[in-house]
Amino acid sequence: MSKGEPTLQAFFRAVGVSPESMFLDVFVHLFNRFKEGMSPGLWYARRFGCSTIDEYVEKHFGEDTVKRVKDAEAKGYDIYIGDLDSDNDAIETLFCCDSFVIDSAKLVIDATEDAW
């Protein structure tokens, strides 16, 4: 969920990583995987037979995620849905094996559902 197109800078601010961090490459890689793996929410919902994002989210996610999506929609955020794949590489596998929420003023990433 993002106010406008998700950017690397907004992602860095949301996760609290400094451009001087020794782990910067990890977060650049993660951001790129998020970008590659996500689609506009309505397109994704329709791909799986739902007519709205809310219908899709209510069928596939828990209460907290449903609330987070509805709150984001009410605030004018763009909703994207996607996935990571633990078969791609070590960084992606690391983040697939955990569930987390990144919540900032311009970007919300909810990776609490379907965690590995």
Rank of each mutant, 00 (worst) to 15 (best):
L24S: 02
D85S: 00
I79M: 08
G76A: 06
V69D: 11
M1C: 05
R47I: 00
S86E: 15
L42W: 04
D87F: 07
S104G: 07
G62A: 04
P40G: 12
S104H: 10
F48R: 10
V57I: 14
G82K: 06
D114K: 13
K59C: 01
V108G: 03
S21E: 00
C96M: 08
P40Y: 13
G76W: 11
F48H: 14
S21C: 04
D89W: 11
A115D: 14
T65F: 04
G4R: 07
S21V: 05
L94C: 11
E5V: 14
A105Y: 04
D25P: 09
K35R: 13
A111T: 10
K70N: 14
K67R: 08
M38E: 06
Y80R: 14
D110Q: 02
R46C: 04
T93A: 11
V28M: 09
V66M: 01
V101G: 09
I91T: 12
V26E: 03
D54T: 15
A72D: 08
F61I: 06
E20T: 10
K59M: 06
T65Q: 08
C97I: 08
I102C: 12
S86H: 05
S18C: 12
P6V: 14
Y56S: 09
D89I: 08
W43D: 09
S86N: 04
A115I: 01
V108S: 02
I79P: 03
A10Q: 13
L94G: 13
I81V: 15
A14K: 03
D78R: 15
L94I: 01
V66L: 05
E58F: 00
A72R: 00
L30R: 05
A105V: 08
D89H: 07
A45N: 05
L30G: 03
S18W: 09
I81K: 11
G16L: 09
K75A: 15
K3P: 05
P19I: 03
L8P: 05
V26Q: 03
F31V: 09
S39H: 15
V17R: 09
D110C: 01
V26D: 00
E73I: 15
R33F: 00
S104Y: 07
I79D: 02
D64G: 10
